[in-house]
Structure formats: structure tokens, C-alpha cells
Design a protein around this nucleic acid. Structure first.
Lengths: 253, 253
DNA sequence: ATCCTAGTGTACGCCACCGTACAGATCTGT
DNA sequence: ACAGATCTGTACGGTGGCGTACACTAGGAT
């Protein structure tokens, strides 16, 4: 029965003990909120996995084959145009879930989901996921809520893309990333960021220089460090605060 | 069983038999998909209502007091920035529902919902809505799906706002509006449209002139007529087709 | 050490859109 | 008919970001 957890290669994890102890490793906040009774039902179906940067979890137009709960790291939800240009429409990490359309029996993804910062977490096949959902109403509810959370992101980003300058957007984006990665230094090339922001790499370079000259960040060869988080929040547009503010308002109610 | 469908020709309808005579009036597509058993439970709680243009259904930050099912007309889902500038992030009409956060017990709205084209439909108080949801699993499922549909819109608009010109966006927007209003002539000032697109009115004027000179639309004092729908689709960016395409893909699966 | 690659800073002309302003056109009320 | 209000077309200079190109630097491989 269900020995379908894999101690996964890339940077092997351990943990081989009972179910209570398993839960201690779990960092995904949705999984952590699930009551014990449901938790065991789902956890046995999850496959632990490492996801190195650039791993693609979902591809637009393609059927959703697996869904994902991250414990660490960051994934970007990206919309891809027919000419290949792309824009990030959401960020997700240990607070979230990847594969939302499956929640309502929509079987293909409208977006690409790609690992932005080395991640680890759990993978679950579509069929198992749908089966689990039927017996886990709390999970279903939490995922529905997360779906709204993610919608707030894309809504805010839609407005931000229209009204705000690249400098401010970059600041917002770094803040959102840091919230999810946890650490204040992480690896990202300007090329990559330009795909997220839907701009030229050159624009990212200029914007990054501005932030660097103000001492808010240091940027060297694909490595960003955030030195002054408060200052960065000031340099950012209101969108960063707007998103976190809305989510807080919902959470506390 | 389940005779809960209408012979639905885009406009003319027939089908005058059986079931609740009430239901014949219903044009909201979500309500129409609900099985008879659930339908009566919810329909008795609905309050028929007319919503003239500019009526505000939801206001950002404010508690959601009512939810809405439209039968006719169009509502815009708008994100409002702190300086008052606004951008539309979704359109909804008889295919949809207004008040999605309530579906997952989130009690405030992150966006403004405002009637764009004179509308009519149903209103239901938050408390009743939540009570009804408990006894109507099919409704809950349909609303969850619609939530994904609307997310596709905001995602596409986010990318569109970044990458496409105002001319093409206007074309897209007119097409999306016409799909919902049904008729090929409707009333909208450039001022209003500029708030939807998040641009200057002057930019709308220029873009509209371009479309008009190509014979795609005629525009006179707040009245738009779409003369050449196919041409307008060509003048639009890919985003119009992308949204409808994704929704079709989901529906048919 | 040397080459090679990946990543970065910066420059150039160009254009779409911005903020603003104003005059003409059409509608409404009296 | 007239005045007032609304709506629309168009103009102006300013600018942020675009597409593109190229030189510079750090690190990895041999």
C-alpha cells in the first residue's frame, strides 16, 4: 500500500517515519491547515520532489497532469503570448498550490507555471488529486480560497502593468519574491526577470541600477540581495501593499 | 430528466412549457444550468431588479452585502488605485455572477463592480446566498468554475496591458462588450471607456477614429455601433480570441 | 594562462502614449 | 431660439519604454 513517496534525488531528503512526524516536514501552508483526519488521506498520495529553477510545472493549452504543493522556493505563473513574449501574472510558494483549474474539473492550464527559485514540495497526479478532493472538503475550501488570493494578484498586476513604471514594478516584484523565498539573497538573472515583467532586459538593468544606487539592493551576476526592505517598499508602487493588504483583510475576517 | 434547459436561440426563444414559468424569464446562464431540485431553493431567495448604467454593485474594501446574477446588460469589474485611476480587469453579463469572494467566505470585495450597460437580473443578500450555497452543491461548483473563467480574463488583460497598443485593446474591449450585451449598438462615452482601459480619453478618441475610418465601427456621441465584426476581430489583439478560446476549451472538455 | 560563455551596463534613434488644453459639434431644457 | 452642458476631435511638447547593438566583466573549462 502506498509507498509512493520518493526520497527524491537532486538533494535527497530523508524522513522515513510515522505520519505525525511527516507532517512536521510539511511547510506548505495549505497542507498545514488541513485537519488530521483529512491530512492522512491526502498525504499518502503526495510524492515528495525537488524542483530546480526553470522546471516547468504547467504549460499553457496542455492538459494538467500533476498538481503541486510547494514547501520551499518560488514558482511563477506566467501568461505566454503567441509570439512567445511572456508576462508574469502571479507568484506562488509555500502559501499556495499549482494546478487550480483542476479544482473545478477544468483539465487544461491557461498559463505556464515555472520554478523561479529552486523549490521542493509535493506532486500529485490529476486522478489522485480529484479523488482526494471528494473526501477532503476542507482542502477543497482552502484551495477555493487560494484561488481568490491568486486572482487578487493577477488583478493587481493587470492594473500595475497599465499604470506604473518599470522601476516601481521591479521593486514590487522583488518584494513579492522575497516574501516567498524567505531569504534576502537569491539568484535571478536580468534576462529572467525581464520575462516576468514583460519588458526588455535593458530596462531591468536600468531599473536595477537605480535601486542599487539608492542602496536598496545589490545585484551581481544573477545574485540579488535586498539590503533595505523598507526602502524597497517605498520605491515600489502601491501594488505590493495592496495585495498583501487585501489578503490580510480576508484572512482576519 | 432535468428539463432545465431553454431552447436557446441567440435571441428569439420559444419554449414555453412546463416547469416553473418563472424559469422562462431567467437568462442567466449559471442559473439555467442548475438542476430543478436546487433551482427552487435558490430562486425563491432572488430579488428581481433593474440596474441602470453606472449602478455600483461592489465597492473595493467594502463588505459584500449582496451578490448578483445578471440576465441582461453588462457589468465591469474594475480595479481602482489609490489615486482614483482605474482599470477594468473583467467583464461579466448573463454568463456570470457578481460577488465571487463570498463564495469562499471572503467578506469584502477587492474590486469595484459597476454596470456598464443597462442591466437587469437578480440580487440576493449575503446571508441568504451563503445559506443557499450549503444546499446547492451544483451552484457552488458552477460558481467555482466561473471564478476560473473570470481569472482567465484578468490574466489575459494583465498581459494585454503590458504588451498591446491601445488601438487593439479598444477593439478587444468592444468585442467583449458586444458578446455580453448581445446587440450591435450600445451606449458608451469615451470618458467611460477611458476609465475601463486605464488611458486618457484623448487616446480613446484617436483609437476610435482609427477603427471608424476603417469602417469597423461608427461612433457618435456616446453611441457605438459595430459594423464589421470580423474586421474588428482582426483589428483586435490576440487576447480576444485567447480568452474565448480558453473558455471554449474548458467547456467542451 | 587562455578562451569561452553568460551576464551586465550603456547608448542610439524611435514611437506610443501621457498630461493638458481648447475649439467644434451635438444634445437638453426653457 | 438660445444658453448651457456634454461629448468629441485634435493639437502640443515631454517622456518612458522599445528594439537593437556593442563593449565590458566575471567565472568556468581546458
Amino acid at each position: 500500500m502506498a509507498v509512493n513517496r520518493r526520497a527524491n534525488g537532486s538533494n535527497g531528503s530523508s524522513d522515513r517515519q510515522a505520519s505525525a512526524a511527516q507532517k512536521q516536514q510539511v511547510e506548505n501552508e495549505i497542507l498545514l491547515k488541513i485537519p488530521r483526519s483529512e491530512f492522512n488521506a491526502i498525504f499518502t498520495k503526495l510524492e515528495a520532489h525537488a524542483f530546480p529553477a526553470r522546471t516547468i510545472l504547467l504549460e499553457p493549452e496542455k492538459p494538467i497532469e500533476n498538481c503541486y504543493f510547494l514547501n520551499r522556493g518560488v514558482a511563477s505563473i506566467i501568461h505566454v503570448m503567441s509570439d512567445g513574449r511572456s508576462v508574469e501574472v502571479g507568484l506562488t510558494g509555500k502559501e499556495g498550490f499549482v494546478g487550480l483549474p483542476a479544482l473545478v474539473d477544468y483539465e487544461s492550464s491557461p498559463v505556464r507555471a515555472v520554478i523561479q527559485i529552486d523549490a521542493s514540495g509535493y506532486k500529485i497526479g490529476l486522478k489522485q488529486f480529484k479523488a482526494v478532493l471528494l473526501s477532503c472538503p476542507v482542502l477543497a475550501k482552502l484551495l477555493s480560497q487560494y484561488s481568490q488570493d491568486l486572482a487578487v494578484q493577477s488583478i493587481q498586476i493587470a492594473a500595475c502593468n497599465r499604470l506604473h513604471s518599470v522601476d516601481r514594478q521591479l521593486a514590487r516584484w522583488l518584494l513579492m519574491s522575497q516574501d516567498r523565498v524567505g531569504e534576502s539573497t537569491f539568484c535571478l538573472t536580468q534576462e529572467f526577470i525581464s520575462h516576468m515583467l514583460g519588458t526588455r532586459r535593458a530596462s531591468v538593468s536600468v531599473a536595477a541600477s537605480v535601486l542599487q544606487k539608492r542602496g536598496l539592493i545589490t545585484y551581481t551576476r544573477g545574485q540579488v540581495s535586498i539590503n533595505d526592505r523598507q526602502g524597497l517598499e517605498k520605491a515600489s508602487c502601491e501594488c505590493y501593499r495592496a495585495i498583501t493588504g487585501q489578503l490580510e483583510a480576508w484572512r482576519k475576517a
